[in-house]
């Protein structure tokens, strides 16, 4: 499998990364190298292997349903570029 240049541009849009045509060409080559590696891995017969969803063979620890966090808004907002009335302000986005 290999990627077309259009697909590289589409992935860049999804990842919110601006790429020039030149960068897209370089990225296409790099991504296709990765796909070649994936191709090699996919050639391995895994029919008898159960799929994993995590690299470690452990299961999840659960936390009790209790409130343990307290309000740290002032601390967190001290590093925010803009705040108003307790809200974080961001460039306007309306879908």
């Amino acid at each position: 499998m290999s990627l077309t240049l259009d697909e590289v541009h589409r992935i860049a849009v999804l990842a919110r990364i601006e790429v020039s045509d030149e960068q897209a060409l370089a990225t296409q080559a790099q991504l296709n190298d990765i796909f070649a590696l994936i191709g090699e891995m996919q050639a391995v017969d895994t029919a008898a292997v159960e799929p994993m969803s995590h690299a470690r063979d452990l299961t999840m620890r659960l936390r009790e349903d209790v409130v343990t966090e307290h309000d740290q808004r002032e601390l967190f907002q001290s590093i925010a570029p803009r705040v108003d009335d307790g809200l974080y302000l961001v460039p306007k986005v309306i879908e």
Binding site: L89, K92, I94
Partner: peptide
Amino acid sequence: FQGMSGID
């Protein structure tokens, strides 16, 4: 918010 969006 004058051209900005507020996030809660």
